[in-house]
């Protein structure tokens, strides 16, 4: 109990002040420990309730997929995990979101510190209009890392992890905008990995890419799984079955009144091991979706 409190305090402390602390003396976490836990989380844009009552847990070194039809709040929930919804003025989160035991939305938590530990890859690749090197070095630089040799090392390692090194090592000075779609997305992944995050959130990372590029990124996810916790939003059910360990199925909240159309509020329908979700779904809506009858 005390250990957990200690851990909680240390993590909270780190989330408050975006500065280096001594080597973290946190109790070693075992694979399978909780990274995120949400309890009854609802997200509002102004008075519009976008997502209601989401309770789930994300486990370490696993790939968790959020699937479901369009507009059911998958991306909204994802962005809540790294406080990106803060950028939208009318957005509001109710309920508890815990990251490694510490409350993510408490007043003393700094969003910038959160985002350094929880990275994000976006749907459409968005490399900076800088050189490939500078794209990857950007994150470490703003974290205060100077020294060319350190940066070179980080850049190379990140690009290798993103399976892009061999393709760009001879043109590191060229603009990141000149890459193909798949390469650009891997560059964005390398950029995210360069800050050594704890978690990588991916918002439909392959939806703008062709099947071959998609395949490479899926392989990439499997390779880095052992080092990072990954949460991916995807429209592609086959992708979810291919890469993920656990799957959360979202849908829109049904309005039970007779003759009413469905609301636009997202709700978590079912969450479990991927195999179970797809082969033996408990909820009828899940079954309808995964067998292709809906969405």
């Amino acid at each position: 109990m005390e250990q957990q409190e200690q851990q909680e305090q240390k993590v909270t402390a780190k989330l408050q002040v975006p500065e280096t602390t001594a080597t973290p003396a946190v109790a070693p976490a075992t694979a399978g420990s909780e990274v995120f836990e949400t309890k009854n989380v609802s997200i509002y844009y102004g008075s519009f309730r976008a997502v209601t009552d989401v309770s789930l847990a994300i486990y370490e070194n696993q790939i968790t997929a959020f699937i479901g039809p369009s507009g059911c709040g998958k991306t909204t929930v994802l962005r809540t995990l790294n406080r990106m919804n803060d950028l939208i003025p009318s957005a509001r989160v109710e309920g508890d979101v815990h990251y490694r035991g510490a409350s993510l939305y408490s007043k003393s938590v700094s969003p910038t510190a959160v985002r350094r530990r929880i990275g994000m890859v976006f749907q459409k690749p968005n490399p900076f209009p800088k050189s490939i090197y500078e794209n990857v070095a950007y994150g470490p630089r703003i974290n205060g890392i100077r020294g060319k040799s350190r940066l070179d090392e980080i850049v190379e390692r990140s690009l290798r992890q993103a399976a892009l090194w061999d393709e760009v090592k001879d043109r590191m000075g060229k603009s990141g905008l000149g890459l193909s779609g798949g390469q650009a997305q891997r560059l964005c992944i390398a950029r995210t990995l360069a800050v050594e995050p704890d978690v990588v959130l991916m918002d439909e990372p392959c939806s703008a890419l062709d099947p071959i590029a998609t395949g490479r990124i899926e392989d990439l996810m499997q390779e880095i799984k052992s080092r990072y916790t990954i949460v991916i939003v995807t429209h592609n059910m086959q992708q979810a079955t291919r890469v993920s360990d656990r799957t959360a199925f979202f849908s829109v909240l049904r309005d039970e009144r007779p003759g009413a159309s469905d609301t636009r509020t997202g709700v978590l329908v079912e969450y479990g091991a991927t195999q179970q979700i797809f082969e033996d779904p408990h909820d009828s809506r899940t079954q309808a979706y995964v067998t292709g009858r809906m969405g």
Binding site: K14, P18, T20, T23, V26, A29, E196, Y228
Partner: peptide, 15 residues
């Protein structure tokens, strides 16, 4: 912050 199997603990995130 994940402790196991990190590539380079000398650069903790947020340092």
């Amino acid at each position: 912050m994940s402790i196991t199997a990190k590539a380079d603990p000398a650069i903790p995130a947020g340092s």
